[in-house]
């Protein structure tokens, strides 16, 4: 009963702050709304008894990734208040791309109607740190090791792009 109320509250906060993110004119307000969305989603993870995921979601996404977003915004020139004029061709292309994405999403949602699995995760322990570790370091060993190669690539790429060539 309490969980249900918490679910409705968190869903309301998540959807509302996501809409606020899209509709706010100031990009910094967008980032702050996105942080609120992430907190609401972390609350959902708590409801699903996935503590580790919830904690990591707050630390990494709401904390670190959002700092990067703010940095990117601060690298832009925000002194110009008016938006760039976009050509008709550009507008047409963006509508087409958005429509395609909507089509794919609708197709996916339509298919899931046939699957009727009720989430019983609130009482299961699959989200606890110990069980997650057991699965990650036995069954999903290769993705884990590949993640380190991804990190290496990200490090080298970031350094290579932002550092001038040492003569």
């Amino acid at each position: 009963m309490l969980t249900e109320y918490a679910f409705w509250f968190l869903s309301f906060v998540a959807i509302f702050s996501a809409l606020a993110m899209i509709f706010s004119k100031n990009p910094v307000y967008s980032v702050l709304s996105l942080i609120l969305t992430f907190f609401a989603i972390a609350g959902h993870y708590f409801l699903l008894n996935a503590q580790f995921l919830a904690a990591v979601h707050i630390i990494v996404y709401a904390g670190a990734i959002m700092v990067l977003f703010l940095y990117v915004i601060m690298m832009l020139n925000l002194n110009r208040l008016e938006e760039d004029k976009k050509s008709t061709w550009m507008k047409f292309l963006s509508v087409a791309a958005g429509g395609l994405l909507l089509f794919v999403l609708l197709a996916v949602v339509k298919r899931t109607d046939e699957i009727t699995i009720t989430a019983q995760a609130a009482n299961s322990d699959c989200g606890l740190v110990e069980n997650l570790g057991k699965v990650l370091y036995n069954d999903y060993l290769l993705p884990f090791e590949l993640a380190s190669i991804l990190f290496l690539g990200a490090m080298v790429g970031a350094v290579y792009l932002s550092k001038k060539e040492l003569a």
Binding site: F52, V60, A64, V67, L68, M75, N77, Y137, A158
Partner: peptide
């Protein structure tokens, strides 16, 4: 609202990478 140096961003992105690395060590 003036654009600032990319060096801050480089430090931040390297921090995030090592942050995620440490998170893998918890489980």
């Amino acid at each position: 609202r003036s654009p600032f140096s990319i060096k801050y961003f480089l430090v931040a992105i390297l921090f995030v990478l090592f942050d995620v690395e440490v998170i893998f060590m918890y489980p």
